[in-house]
Write a protein that binds this DNA or RNA. Structure first.
Lengths: 183, 183
DNA sequence: CCCGAATGAGACGTTCACGTCTCATTCAAT
DNA sequence: ATTGAATGAGACGTGAACGTCTCATTCGGG
């Protein structure tokens, strides 16, 4: 059967996110293929990482598109974003935690653009008066990545049900831990 | 001059959190010592990682103690915890993101205990009625680590001022992004 | 001032994962 | 059934980082 490139990248991201030194052999086995085949599809470890970056950035960009951040109120956009980005969370977690990889790389540009779109969403919410202004849009962007990564990991470890993930992330981000009267 | 063990560990954590494959030589240089001296103080790379785990767990345990999680309401405890844990955030970020290191390790026990203390705090808040119950205490614990790590990273990258970090983390966790009427 | 301890610089051998290659086997399409 | 492509299993050489060691130098206490 032909190798499912998408599947390989997903498995690789899940492993690499939590142990950047994961062996090529382990990645191959996790993806259900042999090390030889892994090398046939990705020229080497570096090429695999690059593919991971490209793949993650592209999928996340599509998720942002699908979330239609400009429509409706900012909170709704954020909820849609969480839902759309959830399948990419594992890859994003890897790129986010290990993103010193980009140093002096052109890939950086693509990443910065995605950051900018997120930041714009938060800024819009602040300007519309629905998001608090004592937390900077930059920080909210970072927090988004952090929570998404933590969520992906929690699901992977079985501490959170995958079905609850969207709700757990979006609600914590929007409403916080404290019980609120206005809901 | 004598080697400042604490300083070496802090620098090592900062580098390793971003790139787990950081060379021993780079760690040594970042700490301002030679590779030879680094090896004189830590038997090897593994020993350095172990020391990092031990050090991080111990410092975080002290932070939890200092936060007096049992006193007052849960929200206050969480605020104090964020403040006390902030100096350890860099080390914790490394341990949290790279914590597949513990597999089948006794160190795991120490971690589990810290986790339990955090989870207990969130559960207490839920039982007292001040924390929402639609987000599990386990998830809140994971989210705490995620946000702390993201915060440490954001400060390191200059996207958030260190002075704002406590407030940024604690307020986002407690109140969320959405502007609330009840404050 | 002297002496011991600690450090820096660098050389050296070893280890281990990587990347390449070969060969047998399986799979899919015709 | 046949053929070509893709895969799995495994061997092999290479390279880079590691850990150890030596020697000169510096630092700090007596």
């Amino acid at each position: 059967m032909p190798v499912d490139r998408e599947h390989v990248l997903t498995e690789a991201a899940a492993l690499l996110a939590r142990r950047a030194t994961t062996l090529m052999d382990e990645i191959a086995r996790a993806a259900g293929i042999s090390r030889a085949t892994l090398h046939r599809h990705f020229a080497g470890r570096d090429a695999l990482i690059r593919a991971l970056e490209e793949h993650g950035i592209e999928r996340f960009a599509r998720a942002i598109d699908a979330a239609r951040l400009d429509e409706g109120d900012a909170a709704g956009g954020l909820r849609r974003l969480v839902r759309e980005a959830e399948p990419v969370a594992g890859v994003l977690a890897f790129l986010f935690t290990e993103n010193q990889l980009f140093e002096n790389e052109p890939v950086n540009a693509g990443w910065a653009q995605l950051d900018a779109r997120l930041t714009a969403l938060f800024r819009r919410g602040q300007e519309e008066g629905t998001f608090r202004v004592d937390l900077s849009a930059n920080w909210l962007t970072e927090a988004f990545y952090g929570l998404l990564g933590a969520g992906a990991w929690a699901v992977h470890e079985g501490r959170v049900a995958r079905n609850d993930l969207d709700h757990s992330i979006a609600e914590l981000l929007l409403g916080g831990i404290r019980r609120s009267m206005e809901k």
